[in-house]
């Protein structure tokens, strides 16, 4: 069986004013359908660049991103991104923001009533149906991120890409949203890639954790499988032996073998 998503020997370098800086070097990774994979690494290691490559927002310098054996070379709704700063359009209401995506993706295949039901179903999924007529400025940061997730899910993507989705949120809101994402993943079985720099978050949510070495020319240092049964509950896991071992493994990788060197930025 071939992989669902395959990152095949990817290099990425940026040329700026005659100087070429190598960001990613020889990234090799395969991800199965329905898998939840986290990418973790210190800031500046190119993990966001990697996500942008998968999204098609930037292009690879060498190698290829293959989704179901088809090369990814431009962005598209089958690889929906949830951005760190939600990126909702402030002049549209919550409903209209999702409608923009739904009418573009399903404008031909679904009738108007079907599209409405689909929007409301996705809002229900993130428990935001009550705020459908609010503008982004009128809801909290956590709620905005929920709407961002709903918008991405409403595109019915083959892969859901989360770019540090909870980075700008406070700890409690973050926990709520992590639970929401786990719940959605278990219900929809969506293949998900999440960028994070939070070790607990990575272990709690992921089937596998991809650990990146430091840049320049960062690559995948190690891939850790998280053999925890689902559904996972954060309170029980906090003393679970497997959870703690996984956590320790990631921490050791990040803070012992690949310590962040400030000058490397």
């Amino acid at each position: 069986m071939t992989a669902y998503l395959k990152l095949d020997h990817i290099d990425k370098s940026f040329a700026r004013g005659g100087q070429v800086s190598e960001v990613l070097k020889d990234i090799r990774l395969t991800i199965d359908k329905g898998e939840f994979v986290s990418i973790i690494g210190h800031s500046g290691c190119g993990k966001s660049t990697l996500l942008n490559l998968i999204a098609g927002l930037t292009t690879v310098s060498a190698g290829a991103v293959l989704l179901e054996n088809k090369e990814v070379d431009s962005p598209g709704p089958e690889r929906a991104v949830v951005f760190q700063n939600h990126s909702l359009l402030p002049w549209l209401t919550v409903y209209e923001n999702i409608n923009l995506a739904v009418s573009k993706v399903f404008g031909r295949s679904k009738s108007k009533a079907e599209r409405h039901d689909w929007i409301m179903r996705n809002l229900d999924l993130v428990q935001m149906a009550h705020a459908r007529d609010k503008r982004p400025a009128e809801i909290s940061g956590g709620m905005k991120q929920r709407v961002g997730i709903a918008r991405a899910l409403a595109m019915e993507p083959k892969i859901l890409l989360l770019d540090e989705p909870f980075g700008a949120l406070d700890a409690l809101t973050r926990a709520h949203l992590q639970d929401a994402v786990m719940d959605i993943h278990s219900r929809l079985g969506s293949t998900t890639i999440m960028i994070t720099h939070d070790v607990d978050e990575a272990v709690l949510l992921s089937d596998r954790i991809v650990m990146m070495t430091n840049g320049p020319a960062a690559t995948i240092g190690e891939v850790l499988a998280v053999p925890l049964a689902r559904p996972r509950r954060r309170v029980e896991l906090s003393s679970d032996r497997t959870f703690l071992l996984c956590r320790e493994a990631v921490l050791k990788f990040l803070y012992e073998r690949h310590r962040f060197v400030e000058a490397a930025e």
Partner: peptide
Amino acid sequence: PQDYRNVARILRL
């Protein structure tokens, strides 16, 4: 903002 452009690109507007 680049974010809005990215949203538009992902939606293939």
